[in-house]
Design a protein around this nucleic acid. Structure first.
Lengths: 341, 341
DNA sequence: CTGTTAGCGCTTTCAT
DNA sequence: ATGAAAGCGCTAACAG
């Protein structure tokens, strides 16, 4: 069955009349090994079909070369580009990724932290669930000084690095842009305010209104899970309003696209009657008609930066000791979604 | 630093004046342990902040409770739903997922197999890269009887289970559908024929043509990587054809959508001038106008089935011993993409 | 440059 | 129901 006697460094050592220690060294690039010895070792290893046993090594070194990743959900374009970026960097640096989803629930997040902790991952890359209130479930991790890096949905903590974009500024830009197109009553679709990304975007939205002397009206702000369904519901609410909004700024593209479709079904013209902007630069935004003005969220780079920062720390190469690293975003203006060409 | 003396079962044993063996048993649900002894053990463990050390356990049991996943790319909607499904099932079954991308290259795929093999994953879930020619890089895996399951992009092998949909039938249905809408010259966009999914779909396409007395014209079949860019190029080729095609069947939605956009830009009416159908039921297909007729590819279920089949095998629960498992697909007809309402 | 030695923390016979 | 003991395969002092 699965186990038919492993070939170990002892077998190689015996065959070559060497000590296991020498073999162990020869198999890596230990400087203190004669070239030809190393060569004999490597050859014999191949001949016997030797395969390095990571977990014996792990046990001994107390290191797994594994990174634990916890994300709310895997199945969004944004998140899969993040993961793709992480995987690329991790792989190049000799690390594996163990990925788990919290499904937007703290309970699952807590369970995932425990599992990964027990698996002795060397470090954590985490984007928080909607309803996570505090970081107490990470205490065991932080107490052992296991590096923990947050990305996207972050939480301030003296021991942790956060990797984000400037959500405030991005939201400010989007809102300002809508205003510059003539919008006066702008709906904002937001989500759980426990999460920085949504509070920051809401703040940016408010700041832009303020700076342009547009009163803030809380009836224009919706809180939901930014799903397609949520977009439909918001649209219906909008259609029922006595005084119709003329702009929408959604915290993600999926929900924005859903709004556009629903509003068009109801006979509204986008952007003439109502302009719409999203967030994330999801491929959807280029396909919906009219194309969606949105914010380019550099997912791949965020994944790469998160992973490389973590690995630098793990490998004690240190580097940036900032507490918060901010990636550049871009406002992507797609003319067709604007009120005035 | 990262290591400040682990709390081990020895510490618990000592504190309770028991043997480590008893503690080890007490921590699981070994039957031969008195209830109150177990309770004392569990309490003391919590008190001391004990955490199970998976890799010592792994080393001993020669099992990691880890599943290695290799996919061509992570950043497609289809693949992320597959992974989401796998993660869900794996997590519920006490397994972790280590995920790696081959980036559509054999070389990377070979390297990934080695790494995962060395990490002693208990089993493999694999979807092959474009240019993988044979399974020799899996020899070490198969020789050790480590379970290997292919999904989506599969390869026949007596020791392996394949999980697929009926690509032939799906393609036949799509093509027949286009024909029923009056299409007579149907372009097919395909990819590397080393992969079952593309050969099967091409076969389905040909069979449908044959059954409807439409001659097969190889100039109408394009091979590329199904990207946005590929869609643009195909569209340009189509526009240059002396006798213009009136239908397109693309092997994925991204490329189909790209074609629609490009053809519309060139002034063609979709579907009046040319009807388009895709594959995968990507969210894009519901957003493009006209909506795209496509094939629902049940990614989440495929991920769940792959993972649960593997885990059943790993846990020796066996179950289905089929060599190939075929999931149900659905043709999704979106009226607006058809020639005649 | 190579060898000796002593574990890493856990599980599992085999005893009792 | 519990304990003793051996060892999974590797690595890192330390010694030479």
């Amino acid at each position: 069955m699965t186990t038919q006697k492993e070939v170990t460094i002892y077998d190689i050592a015996e065959a070559l009349d060497l000590s296991p220690a020498t073999v162990s060294r020869g198999l890596k690039d230990h400087p203190a090994i004669r070239k030809d010895t190393r060569k004999r070792i490597v050859e014999k290893a191949r001949e016997l079909g030797y395969q390095h046993n990571s977990f014996a090594s792990n046990l001994r070194r107390n290191k797994t070369n594994t990174i634990g990743v916890i994300v709310p959900r895997l199945n969004s374009y944004f998140m899969s580009t993040v993961i793709a970026g992480m995987e690329k960097v991790a792989n190049a640096g000799g690390y594996n990724l163990i990925i788990s989803q919290s499904m937007e629930s703290v309970d699952k997040e807590v369970a995932n932290v425990k599992t990964l902790f027990n698996s002795r991952v060397d470090g954590f890359l985490v984007s928080l669930a909607y309803d996570t209130e505090d970081l107490s479930h990470f205490d065991m991790v932080l107490d052992k000084n296991i590096p923990l890096i947050f990305f996207d949905r972050v939480f301030e903590h003296p021991k942790c690095i956060s990797i984000v974009i400037d959500n405030f500024k991005a939201a400010y830009e989007v809102t300002t842009h809508l205003i510059s197109q003539g919008c006066k009553r702008i709906v904002h679709i937001s989500a759980n305010l426990k999460r920085n990304v949504y509070t920051d975007r809401l703040r940016g939205y408010k700041a832009a209104l303020l700076d342009h002397n547009i009163p803030y009206d809380e009836k224009l702000v919706f809180f939901n899970n930014l799903s397609d369904q949520a977009g439909i519901e918001v649209s219906e609410a909008i259609l029922k309003m006595e005084q119709r909004p003329d702009g929408i700024f959604s915290s993600n593209d999926a929900c924005a696209v859903s709004c556009i479709r629903q509003l068009k079904l109801a006979g509204l013209k986008v952007p003439t009657d109502i302009a719409v902007a999203g967030f994330n630069n999801d491929p959807l935004s280029k396909v919906i008609e009219p194309n969606l003005t949105t914010v380019n969220y550099p997912g791949q780079e965020m994944g790469e930066l998160a992973a490389s920062t973590l690995i630098r720390r793990l490998d004690r190469l240190e580097g940036a000791n900032l507490n918060t690293m901010v990636l550049r975003h871009d406002l992507i203006v797609r003319e067709s979604s604007l009120k005035k060409g």
